[in-house]
């Protein structure tokens, strides 16, 4: 069973978002890393890149598969998890901690209303037959 921390927001694309003030930390969920398997390569944007909500902003690759990752919210990238270049497996080991992907400066800090709560995300996983 996948771990779904209650203090985070989620997307249907299996990303998590930790909003604090006008910025947000973004990663993929425990469920996503389980589905993906061992992550061996990560492609992330550069600091300063801007994205609209739902834009593809990077790629995670396992031995077997490629998965795109989508921006949960519109904004500008202010920090990228550089440790993932050398240790992409941090995403498997600690998806909600050291395996974070990027931090974004939100274009509109009120737009977070569209994100799922932990309970809603868990319901989504249950529907998916997880």
């Amino acid at each position: 069973m996948a771990n779904v921390p209650s203090d985070l927001k989620y997307t249907k694309e299996h990303e998590w978002v930790r909003v604090s003030g006008s910025s947000a930390m973004v990663g993929v969920t425990d469920f996503a890393q389980q589905q993906l398997g061992d992550v061996v390569y990560v492609e992330l944007p550069k600091e300063g890149d801007s994205f609209g909500a739902s834009d593809e902003f990077g790629t995670l690759e396992s031995v077997k598969a490629v998965s795109e990752i989508f921006a949960p919210l519109a904004g500008k990238v202010v920090k990228v998890n550089a440790a993932l270049v050398e240790s992409p497996d941090l995403i498997n080991m600690d998806p909600y901690g050291d395996g974070w992907l990027i931090e974004i400066e939100l274009a509109d800090s009120k737009q977070t209303d569209g994100l799922l709560s932990a309970a809603q995300y868990e319901a989504l996983l249950r529907e998916g037959g997880e």
């Binding site: 398997g37 061992d38 061996v40 396992s62 031995v63 077997k64």
Partner: peptide, 11 residues
Amino acid sequence: PVQYSSVIAEH
């Protein structure tokens, strides 16, 4: 089965 635990560990 495509994998049990981890492709890398199985490899």
